[in-house]
Design a protein around this nucleic acid. Structure first.
Length: 957
RNA sequence: GCCGCGAUGGUGGAAUCGGUAGACACGAAGGACUUAAAAUCCUUUGGCCCGAAACGGCUGUGUGGGUUCAAGUCCCACUCGCGGUACCA
């Protein structure tokens, strides 16, 4: 009976589809379970074998949970907005919607072939107006709410207005515009002039997590700093809750640590430094203003006695008023220089730069006059944008002090600061007045007490987490549901949503530098008629301009997991009922690259919706697992470049270190798809690219003749060319991309699924190496052969033992996400059962059920064969996915005898077999009486005999 | 620099609670079947040593120490690799 995987897989995929087997209902008596894969971006290249790794794992888990009696929600959709489609549109004029939909089609067809149990009727895509309706809606809610820092939750902006009306007599005197401006400082979605990462090549701003090392993550283009008016989300308000919420999540420690670092809580103190009154009268802007103290933030309050200068960030508002007339020209020159520097230059070039402001501050403890500098090593966005510099105990301050020849006062006993600073928070204080002799930790506490009591400062907490910049000067994203009246933003009414993305013919910025939506003709808001109208009608009386920016990539992916609970709801993002049933994502699988982007934003978004009482859980993802990356495994041919090289001779890998070829060959990437088990397909290679058409080879045997005479056959057999290999990123340019479609065509989806799991632990990254796939495929063939005839005979004890060993192992593995170890367990069970010639339904049916989560197609066919050899799907109305997970009966696993490995001084010498439950001292006697014991004791008396019941014996001499 | 993860045969990996290291698979070598090949099946396969043979000895989980009757597993110090992050005061 041949294992025809292609027929089997097509047959059952159709049957499942026809029967709607994977549709999930929100109404069920069963317990619920929600398994989610991270939203893929449908790239033009389609899926490669790395993508399905996590999907296969989550599919196995989903199927297992369903077989255990859960109602399992397991959806899939697409993060459809994004830069690549738009870049492609700019280059080709092809509308991004067209390419995006094409790519989605391709993804869906590839995913379907792998046999996932997704409920496709719940699929969503972010560029669908029915979907982004709720993205826009959430944005309006954020616009209409502020964060109450006392209550630690979002509240309606109307409550704030009411408070202003009640408590602030000036409120009523403000104009509408002034009132709006004031409210803008509180809204969770707000407009602000912020320093942004501007990417000129992409023509848009980017969030911090979209920039890496001064280059855009997508595309790798340079990024510079620019101040622009942008929509922002007040994520920072949620920093304490985002931090504290991590403690209750079942995520890996490494991921939680990454988020903790990104949120960056630091406890410290704000402290005020008085400004020295300038002797020459009034060189500063205004007498009283110039003398107002400046506030700094420090985590090292203990080091105040060692402050020898202060530094302001170039963007600090203190800069203007502290710059003296004498220094003004120099300061302005420095500020100009800082401003034109790109982020990349800043990272690449860490040399000390800065300028003296001309002013002095007074150290509140020593009363010393200390100069105030301006330097870009101090960041405007963190703390107060001003620092007290303690060169002896901060390496950055140290470098600055050395460069400008400023004094360095050591504060910790025994610290040598002649060559470098001593940054560690340990040791005993000195040169520090009343702190002398204290440990650093105690000194910090004492100093905090002192500054609180004297009123020169206060204890505070700072967070590194910044507000998210939410505007993109791009076309292919969600439009903001916002129009501008007198320069101030107003949301369009909620019942007018979705505000659909208008058609444009040009995807580049306009000639006047407006974002691409500037090209849209029908893009103005008619307030009276509540509709989008032609721009020509803008009169700023009843027709107003609409926002031209669109939302960033993370907008659509921040709440999509809620939408799957209730994907067709036209009244709400998710109904209360649906949300109460599913609650939250129980298991979330995806890559760790989303640690500081998506996983922060969606936690924020979810907490906001929670504050509004719209979702029942304040965290979206209860348990999260990161699957490892699948790296590429590249193959190489070795072009001969030594003497007499024709440029078309290739040396087999096993020969390249021979003297005649060593250092005379050049490795060239070769498409891994024309290499099998590191052996090159010569014909395919010659046809691969024109330059290889006339390739000649030195084969593995060291000769160049292409064939070997075959003594048995008139014909000749081809010889082998061995390729070298290396592990690299999977990418087109390395010719190491493997497409799951090809694997499925050659081996079937079940083999692909099994093999991806077989490669190694889910969380670890590993190269895709097809070399082992034959073994997994052979296992399926052998398993398949067991089902040729199925009988109703009673199984033997041994057969039951094999089965129940397998039940125990597979159940444990799935519960613990150890999918790689299940495959050998199946192989072992198969070979045991085959050796016993087992063809009994009582064994083979549970075997098929156990295999079903891993290899659903073949398992379905096996399951049906157990019922009738010729059963058709129509005659059997149940699928293996609904078959009850087999129950473990430990009784079958109990052995009559116990085997003890017997060690002498920790080395295993022989094995002792004795009846089960032999008492400890009896085992000891048996060991000492054993015929081999005397030999290993070699005349020594045993000092001690350790018997671990059921495990091992160790004789200590 | 800081944080996290990892290192086990020729290769991917297993050893789940400190208890027989190398399961399972690939590859390789040898054999059976075959006119031949493919497919399939069987045997061997960490290294070294002794031997006619053995259920013979030694050694062995990145390096160096330690704890323990017993360490791939726990502790300390280090090396290398991977990922993240970086003037965050």
């Amino acid at each position: 009976m041949e294992y025809n995987f292609s027929d089997i897989e097509q047959k059952w995929q159709k049957a499942w589809n026809d029967a709607n087997a994977y549709a999930v209902s929100n109404e069920s008596d069963k317990p619920h379970y929600y398994v989610l894969d991270m939203f893929p971006y449908p790239s033009g290249a389609g899926l490669h074998v790395g993508h399905p790794l996590g999907y296969i794992a989550s599919d196995i888990y989903s199927r297992y949970k369903r077989q255990c009696g859960f109602n399992v929600l397991h959806p899939m959709g697409f993060d459809a907005y994004g830069l690549p489609a738009e870049q492609y549109a700019i280059q080709t004029g092809q509308h991004p919607e067209v390419t995006t939909n094409k790519n989605i089609e391709r993804y869906i067809s590839q995913l379907r072939k792998i046999g996932f149990c997704y409920d496709w009727s719940r699929s969503v895509k972010t560029c669908d107006p029915q979907f982004y309706h709720w993205t826009q809606w959430a944005f309006i809610q954020m616009f209409n709410h502020y964060y109450d820092n006392v209550a630690q939750k979002a509240k309606p902006i109307s409550e704030l207005v009411a408070r202003f009306e009640r408590e602030d007599p000036t409120w009523a005197t403000l104009s509408e515009r002034e009132q709006q401006e004031r409210l803008m400082q509180y809204r969770i979605a707000y407009l602000a002039d912020t320093k942004v990462n501007w990417c000129p090549e992409l023509g848009t701003v980017l969030a911090n997590d979209e920039v890496s090392e001064g280059l855009s993550v997508r595309g790798g283009y340079p990024v510079e700093q620019r101040v622009m008016r942008q929509w922002c989300l007040r994520v920072s308000a949620y920093a304490p809750r985002l931090l504290e919420g991590l403690d209750r999540l079942d995520w890996t420690d490494s991921l939680k640590d990454t988020q903790r670092n990104w949120i960056g809580r630091s406890e410290g103190a704000e402290m005020q430094f008085d400004i020295k009154k300038h002797p020459s009268g009034s060189p500063l802007k205004g007498e009283s203003e110039s003398e107002a103290p400046i506030t700094i933030f420090t985590t090292r309050a203990d080091t105040v006695f060692g402050v020898t200068f202060m530094v302001l960030a170039p963007e600090s508002e203190y800069v203007g008023r502290l710059t003296t007339d004498e220094q003004r020209a120099e300061v302005e020159q420095y500020l100009a220089w800082v401003k034109h520097r790109t982020e990349r230059e800043r990272i690449a070039d860490r040399k000390v730069t800065g300028v003296f402001s001309g002013s002095y501050a007074i150290n509140p403890l020593t009363n010393a006059e200390i100069p105030i500098y301006i330097s870009d090593y101090v960041l405007a966005g963190y703390g107060t944008g001003a620092i007290m510099a303690v060169p002896a105990h901060d390496s950055r301050d140290y470098a600055f002090a050395k460069h400008f020849n400023l004094p360095i006062i050591p504060l910790i006993e025994g610290a040598d600061v002649s060559e470098q600073s001593f940054d560690a928070k340990e040791g005993k204080m000195m040169n520090s007045g009343f702190l002398n002799g204290l440990d650093v930790k105690d000194a910090i506490a004492k100093m905090k007490e002192y500054i609180t009591n004297t009123g020169i400062g206060r204890v505070t907490v700072n967070y590194r987490l910044r507000d998210a910049i939410f505007s993109r000067q791009r076309y292919w994203g969600e439009p903001f549901p916002i129009y501008y009246k007198d320069g101030m933003p107003y949301p369009i009414p909620e019942d007018c949503l979705p505000l659909e993305l208008p058609a444009v013919t040009e995807f580049k910025p306009t000639a006047t530098g407006e974002p691409p939506l500037g090209h849209a003709q029908v893009w103005a808001w008619d307030e009276k008629n509540k509709k989008v109208v032609d721009k020509k009608l803008i009169d700023n009386k009843s027709v107003y301009p609409l926002e031209l920016c669109t939302m960033p990539g993370f907008a659509g992916s921040s709440a999509y997991y809620l939408r799957y609970m209730d994907p067709h709801n036209n009244e709400a993002l998710v109904s209360r009922q649906a949300n109460d049933y599913w609650q939250q994502v129980d298991l979330y699988l995806g890559g760790s690259e989303h640690a500081t982007g998506h996983l922060i934003y969606s936690r924020f978004w979810n907490k906001f919706l929670f504050d509004l009482g719209l979702v029942c859980k304040d965290e979206p993802f209860r348990k999260l697992i990161n699957q490892g990356m699948i790296q590429g495994r590249s193959n190489f041919v070795y072009r001969y470049i030594g003497e007499g090289a024709t440029g078309n001779l290739y040396v087999s890998y096993n020969l390249i270190n021979n003297p005649e070829y060593k250092d005379k060959v050049q490795p060239i990437h070769v498409d891994v798809n024309i290499v099998h088990n590191d052996v090159l397909d010569i014909t395919a290679f010659r046809n691969w690219m024109p330059e290889f058409k006339n390739a000649t080879f030195v084969f593995a045997d060291g000769t160049s003749s292409e064939v070997e005479d075959n003594p048995y056959l008139g014909a000749a057999m081809p010889k082998q060319y061995i390729c070298g290999w290396a592990v690299e990123k999977m990418s087109k340019s390395m010719f190491n991309v493997v497409n799951p479609d090809d694997v499925i065509a050659n081996y079937g989806a079940d083999t692909l699924r099994l093999y991806e799991m077989f490669l190694g632990p889910l969380e670890m990254s590993k190269p895709w190496d097809t070399n082992g796939i034959d073994g997994v495929h052979r296992f399926l063939k052998k398993a398949w052969n067991m089902y040729e005839t199925v009988t109703d005979e009673q199984p033997t004890k041994e057969e039951f033992k094999s089965l129940h060993k397998l039940i125990k192992k597979i159940t444990w593995d799935i519960e613990n996400f150890s999918f790689n170890t299940s495959i050998p367990a199946f192989m072992i069970a198969q070979s045991e059962l085959a050796a016993l010639k087992c063809n009994k339904r009582a064994i083979l049916e549970p075997f098929a059920i156990l295999l079903a989560p891993y290899a659903p197609h073949i398992a379905e066919e096996m399951y049906h064969r157990c019922h009738s050899l010729n059963a058709q799907p129509s005659t059997l109305n149940s699928f293996v996915i609904d078959a009850q997970w087999p129950e473990l009966n430990e009784a079958y696993l109990v052995e009559d005898t116990q085997k003890y490995p017997v060690q002498f001084n920790g080395k295993v010498r022989f094995t002792l077999e004795c009846p089960k439950d032999t008492p400890k001292d009896e085992v000891e006697k048996l060991v000492l009486a054993h015929e081999d014991t005397a030999r290993y004791l070699a005349g020594n008396a045993p000092k001690k005999v350790i018997v671990v019941p059921g495990r091992i014996v160790n004789v200590v001499m």
